[in-house]
Amino acid sequence: MKLRFPTILRLLVFALLIVFLIRPEWFASVFRPLTENNAPAIYNQGSLLTLTLLHLRTVAIATAGATVVAIALAILVTRPIGAEFLPLSRSLVNIGQTFPPVAVLALAVPAVGFGEKPTLIALFLYGLLPIFENSLTGLTTLPPTVTDAARGVGMTGWQRLIKVELPLAMPIILAGIRLSVVINLATATIGSTVAAKTLGEVIIAGLQSNNLAFVLQGGLIVGILAVMIYDGMSAIEKFIAKRTGLVQQT
Rank of each mutant, 00 (worst) to 15 (best):
I173N: 02
R178N: 13
A150C: 02
R151V: 08
D148S: 12
G154Y: 08
M170T: 15
L166N: 11
G157M: 03
V146M: 07
M155E: 01
S180G: 07
V164D: 10
T145G: 03
I173Q: 04
V181F: 03
G154C: 04
V181N: 02
A195H: 11
P167M: 13
L168F: 13
R160Y: 05
K163F: 13
M170V: 12
R151G: 09
T189V: 15
P144T: 13
A169Q: 04
I183W: 04
I177E: 02
A186H: 05
L179A: 04
I190E: 08
L142S: 01
D148Q: 10
L168S: 00
G191S: 08
D148Y: 06
K197I: 03
W158P: 00
I183V: 11
P167K: 14
I172W: 02
I177H: 01
A150H: 04
T189K: 14
D148P: 00
G154R: 06
M155T: 00
A195G: 03
I162V: 15
L142W: 11
I177T: 00
G176N: 06
L174M: 14
R160P: 02
L179H: 05
A169D: 10
V146K: 04
A186R: 14
T156W: 09
R151P: 03
A195K: 09
E165Q: 14
G154A: 04
Q159Y: 04
L142V: 07
S180D: 06
M170I: 10
I172V: 15
R151D: 09
I162P: 05
R178G: 10
V164E: 13
P167A: 11
K163G: 00
L174K: 06
A175F: 07
A149H: 01
V194K: 12
L142D: 09
R151T: 08
I177C: 04
V181H: 06
V146S: 05
D148V: 00
L168R: 09
L161G: 07
R178V: 05
G191Y: 09
T189H: 14
I172C: 05
L161T: 04
T187A: 15
G176W: 08
L142E: 01
T193K: 15
A195M: 05
L179K: 01
E165F: 12
V164S: 09
D148G: 02
M170L: 15
A175I: 12
Q159I: 04
E165H: 09
P167T: 14
K197N: 15
E165K: 13
M155I: 01
G157K: 05
Q159G: 08
L185Q: 04
R178F: 02
R178H: 07
G152M: 07
R160F: 00
P143W: 06
L142N: 03
V153G: 06
I177N: 00
A196D: 12
Q159W: 10
G152I: 10
R178A: 03
T187R: 06
P143Y: 11
A150I: 07
